[in-house]
Design a protein around this nucleic acid. Structure first.
Length: 568
DNA sequence: AATCGTACTTAGAAGCCATTAA
DNA sequence: TTAATGGCTTCTAAGTACGATT
């Protein structure tokens, strides 16, 4: 068996669609069983203490643990929780408890806070013991053997029970996410492997041997009824090759994107409405890096959209505004209920088409009523083998990084400035892809702290300069070796402090510009890592400055193969 | 052509932990 | 030594895509 460095990176390993020949693993790690509360920690109903049955108590603790969170103040959350909680109650509890507002979970909540405080206060030895235990679990369950390699598993722990927290305005927030038992679990491994054993006295739902898929374990979750999987870590061969393939597809798009653009511009003039809609949608996907926008079941999830599912209410048309013609204003919630807001001028033909699409429609009607993702992707497939809507996002993200790096990097800047340039290029992509984050709660304070540091450094610098000056004067007078040396030392000190100051200032700029932007998602999922590897080699920046350990493991394939001439 | 089921990628937030400042 | 900070890891929700079925 060999380590990750001896992968033979190949794009197409098997030609029959199978993903592996041999797969052996230990199965999942289950959530620890529920530990009842100590007797002195009470739940109160209508001001009176009330002992709950274990199942009702467990669900109550889920709520208690979230008491400080805004979620628990939301009506839908409370309603969903209460409904599911009642299902766990005994009939006696059901008749006693009739109003969530009369339930007092604060003692439970305080207990958990005290516990987490106690965990922080543990001695070094106790913490070490826990760490070792975790390490043992990782060694036993965290790896599998796929074909000839020992591979790290991504998520080998089963999700513990709790209250469902959706993103945004989710109609199911607060529902009980039930505990997963061995009887819910499907195991996937090869026939000739040592099969994982279910915990004593239990059985798996099923053991199968399907080598057309990459997952090791699956179960069906009870909120949406969707399937959850245990799969390999991004560092694994199977994920790495897939990732590589993704970027190769995007590079193929690069070769034919001009042709495709010409074609969709032409299609804006089509006689057929469906073709015009397809062409305008594709233009948005290409120009604005919008997601495809699959249909979603209404009422089952938060109301979010992508390109194909945009509704009339999500855009506004301005024939003229702020001195610009044909402006479209987008305002909608995308994936994870992140707001997409953009006001951009478009070509006249696009504008006229949009006006046409809006005719006789209500705000809640689909903008592209003759289009969906499957129609669009079928069309794209005809334009290029393997082309789908999301390839445009990958392509535009990667090509933007490459262009920005070329534009922003200058030979004379030092390493911190180079890193700033890199981050700025990365940021351009994050903005394109609308990767946002909530500004960190401590943002203002941490900026202030940094500014304090900068001010202190500036004082230090002027002191050092003054000292240098007097040392020079001294040397001029005395002209001996000792004072000359002193000048040299002072000079170096000034230089060092200047460098430190510069570094701090760069850091401040970087952080300020990054306030609401998340760089991680594009770095991890959209930017061909070979562009970054090549940039590092070209400018003699060590790869550790750009990628941390986990990222280097994920991008091992790219670090292996890209040289400084790599072009996306 | 609509619907469903499945498998996989992409996503931001929370939690954890090492480092640094006080 | 302790507390604050920030980076990294973990978690799991929420997307995309596609083949099968009706």
């Amino acid at each position: 068996m060999s380590g990750p460095l001896d992968y033979q990176w190949e794009e197409e390993r098997y030609t029959d669609g199978s993903k592996w020949r041999f797969l052996e693993h230990k199965g999942p790690v289950f959530a620890p069983p529920y530990e009842p509360l100590p007797k002195n920690v009470k739940f109160y109903y209508d001001g009176k203490p009330m002992k709950l049955s274990a199942p009702a108590e467990e669900v109550a603790t889920f709520f208690a643990k979230m008491l400080d969170h805004e979620y628990t103040t939301k009506d839908i959350f409370r309603k969903n929780f209460y409904k599911d909680w009642r299902k766990e109650m005994t009939s006696e509890e059901k008749s006693k408890i009739s109003d969530l507002n009369k339930c007092d979970f604060t003692e439970m909540s305080d207990y958990f806070k005290a516990q987490s405080e106690a965990r922080k206060q543990m001695t070094k030895e106790e913490k070490q013991k826990i760490r070792e235990e975790n390490e043992r679990t990782l060694q036993e369950y965290g790896f599998c053997v796929m074909d000839n390699h020992k591979e790290r598993i991504g998520n080998f722990r089963i999700e513990p029970p709790g209250l469902f927290r959706g993103r945004g305005d989710h109609p199911k927030m607060g529902m009980l996410k039930r505990r997963i038992r061995p009887e819910d679990i499907i195991i996937n491994c090869s026939k000739d492997s040592k099969h994982p054993k279910p915990p004593p006295g239990t059985k798996w739902k099923e053991v199968r041997h399907d080598n057309k898929v990459t997952w090791l374990v699956s179960w069906t979750e009870n909120i949406q009824g969707s399937i959850k999987y245990i799969m390999l870590n991004p560092s694994s061969r199977i994920k790495g090759e897939k990732d590589w393939q993704k970027y190769e597809t995007a590079r193929r798009l690069k070769k034919c994107v001009d042709r495709i653009r010409t074609q969709y511009r032409d299609d804006w003039k089509s006689k057929e409405m469906r073709i015009r809609q397809r062409a305008v949608a594709l233009y948005f996907i290409d120009k604005l890096a919008l997601r495809a926008g699959n249909e979603k079941e209404e009422g089952e999830t938060a109301d979010t959209v992508g390109c194909c599912s945009l509704r009339v209410e999500h855009i506004k048309l301005y024939p003229e505004i702020d001195g610009q013609e044909f402006v479209v204003e987008f305002d909608f919630l995308g994936k994870d209920s992140i707001r997409y807001y953009n006001k951009i001028p478009v070509e006249k033909r696009v504008f006229k088409n949009l006006q046409l699409f809006l005719e006789n429609k209500q705000p809640e009607d689909d903008l592209f009523d003759r289009l969906n993702t499957s129609i669009l992707n079928k069309h794209l497939q005809e334009l290029m083998d393997g082309l789908t809507a999301k390839v445009f996002r990958t392509y535009n993200a990667s090509i933007t990084l490459q262009q920005q790096l070329k534009e922003l990097t200058t030979p004379e800047e030092n390493i911190p400035a180079k890193i700033l340039s890199y981050n700025r290029a990365n940021r351009a992509v994050a903005i394109l892809c609308n990767h946002q984050r909530a500004p960190p709660k401590t943002f203002e304070k941490s900026m202030q702290n940094l500014q304090t540091k900068i001010d202190a450094k500036k004082d230090q610098l002027s002191d050092a300069r003054r000292e240098l000056k007097s040392a020079k004067a001294d040397a001029k007078m005395r002209k001996d070796e000792k004072t000359k040396k002193a000048v040299d030392t002072k000079k170096k000190a000034v230089q060092r402090i200047e460098e430190q100051l510069m570094k701090l200032e760069v850091q401040a700029t970087d952080r300020e510009e990054n306030k609401q932007i998340a760089l991680g998602t594009s770095k991890l999922n959209y930017l061909d890592p070979r562009i970054s590897v090549a940039w590092c080699k070209k400018w003699d920046v060590s790869i550790e400055k750009i990628y941390n350990k986990t990222q280097r493991e994920k991008f091992a394939w790219a670090i292996d193969m890209a040289d400084e001439d790599f072009e996306f």
